[in-house]
Every structure is written in C-alpha cells, then in structure tokens.
Simulated scan of single mutants.
Amino acid sequence: MRQQRGHIISLSSIHGLKVFSPGGAVHSASKFALRALSEGLRAELATTPIRSTLITPGAVDTGIQHKTTGSDSARMLDIDKNAIPPEAVARAIAFAMEQPANVDINEIVVRPTAQAI
C-alpha cells in the first residue's frame, strides 16, 4: 500500500474448478479456497492500486509426476503425458502483470489442449 502498487499472484490448480476424484477432496478444497481468497482480495483491494490474479494451471511438466507412488502413479503419469512446460505458466503470470493499472486479470486457466479436465 505504501508503494502505491502491487500485484498478488496466487497459484492454484484446475482441481479448484473440478474435484480431483477419487482421493482428491482435501486437495481440491484447498484450491477452491484459493479461488475465494483471490476473488475476496480483488474485491477488497478494488479501490487500491493493488491487483489480485489467480493462475489455474492444468498438467505442468514439473517432474513431480515421476515422484507419485502407490496405486495412483499410473493415473498421474497418464494425466501428465501431455503436460505443458512451466514456461507456459510463467507467461500467463507475466501477461497478467503486464496489463495497464486499470485492468485486472482475475483468473487465467492454462492447461494442455489435450487435457480432458
């Protein structure tokens, strides 16, 4: 507030748009909560020079898909076979931040074109 500018970027997941099931209720709940927090901040800061953007990526090739163990590992590898590079998420963040001061990008969903969810 003192700087008279700012941009809060929250990183969520498409699991904040659709519950990841089975076994993802708690994970999805945390991502749905980020949507509420980001929208609440946007509304509360509307009269200030601070913006709020939620970035909602789908499958991103971070390497974490190779660390999943147990019965879900095959499913995770299948979901992530068409994962987008991390740079695609970085470009979405940069796009939101590059907008003029009077433009607020509330949410960007970025995911592989081949991803069903």
Score class of each variant (00 low, 15 high):
residue 74 A to P: 05
residue 105 I to F: 06
residue 19 V to F: 09
residue 53 T to R: 00
residue 106 N to Y: 11
residue 65 Q to H: 10
residue 9 I to Y: 03
residue 20 F to V: 12
residue 105 I to M: 07
residue 99 Q to R: 11
residue 1 M to K: 14
residue 67 K to L: 10
residue 24 G to R: 01
residue 42 R to P: 01
residue 19 V to Q: 06
residue 54 L to I: 02
residue 52 S to Q: 00
residue 45 L to Y: 03
residue 115 Q to L: 14
residue 10 S to A: 11
residue 39 E to M: 09
residue 22 P to A: 10
residue 24 G to Y: 06
residue 101 A to T: 07
residue 112 P to V: 07
residue 79 I to E: 01
residue 41 L to F: 07
residue 92 A to M: 08
residue 114 A to D: 15
residue 43 A to L: 12
residue 102 N to R: 08
residue 25 A to H: 11
residue 108 I to T: 02
residue 97 M to N: 09
residue 31 K to T: 08
residue 10 S to E: 07
residue 81 K to V: 07
residue 5 R to P: 02
residue 105 I to W: 03
residue 106 N to C: 14
residue 78 D to L: 07
residue 103 V to C: 05
residue 63 G to H: 02
residue 23 G to L: 11
residue 97 M to C: 11
residue 98 E to S: 15
residue 51 R to G: 01
residue 30 S to I: 13
residue 108 I to M: 00
residue 5 R to L: 08
residue 64 I to V: 08
residue 65 Q to P: 03
residue 62 T to C: 03
residue 75 R to M: 05
residue 51 R to L: 02
residue 94 A to W: 14
residue 12 S to V: 12
residue 64 I to P: 02
residue 59 A to N: 05
residue 113 T to C: 12
residue 103 V to W: 05
residue 64 I to T: 11
residue 69 T to D: 00
residue 115 Q to I: 13
residue 16 G to C: 05
residue 14 I to K: 12
residue 76 M to I: 15
residue 83 A to M: 03
residue 66 H to C: 06
residue 27 H to D: 10
residue 39 E to N: 08
residue 1 M to R: 12
residue 99 Q to A: 13
residue 53 T to D: 02
residue 80 D to S: 15
residue 94 A to Q: 14
residue 101 A to F: 06
residue 94 A to M: 15
residue 41 L to K: 10
residue 16 G to Y: 00
residue 43 A to W: 09
residue 42 R to M: 04
residue 16 G to M: 06
residue 34 L to Y: 03
residue 2 R to E: 10
residue 63 G to P: 00
residue 44 E to V: 00
residue 48 T to Y: 03
residue 81 K to M: 07
residue 71 S to Q: 11
residue 110 V to G: 03
residue 106 N to F: 14
residue 114 A to N: 13
residue 93 I to L: 04
residue 109 V to L: 10
residue 32 F to H: 04
residue 65 Q to A: 08
residue 87 E to Y: 13
residue 42 R to L: 03
residue 55 I to A: 02
residue 46 A to K: 09
residue 43 A to H: 12
residue 77 L to T: 08
residue 38 S to N: 03
residue 33 A to V: 09
residue 4 Q to R: 15
residue 26 V to L: 15
residue 96 A to K: 00
residue 50 I to D: 00
residue 12 S to N: 12
residue 57 P to I: 05
residue 116 A to K: 13
residue 49 P to G: 02
residue 81 K to N: 06
residue 84 I to V: 06
residue 56 T to D: 04
residue 19 V to S: 08
residue 82 N to P: 06
residue 33 A to E: 02
residue 17 L to Y: 14
residue 14 I to P: 11
residue 60 V to E: 03
residue 76 M to D: 02
residue 75 R to Q: 07
residue 82 N to A: 14
residue 30 S to H: 11
residue 55 I to N: 05
residue 113 T to I: 12
residue 26 V to Y: 12
residue 105 I to T: 05
residue 28 S to G: 05
residue 32 F to V: 00
residue 87 E to K: 11
residue 96 A to N: 03
residue 9 I to F: 02
residue 103 V to G: 05
residue 66 H to K: 14
residue 18 K to S: 15
residue 115 Q to C: 10
residue 53 T to M: 01
residue 106 N to R: 15
residue 72 D to K: 02
residue 84 I to W: 01
residue 67 K to A: 12
residue 31 K to Q: 08
residue 117 I to M: 15
residue 110 V to K: 04
residue 18 K to Q: 13
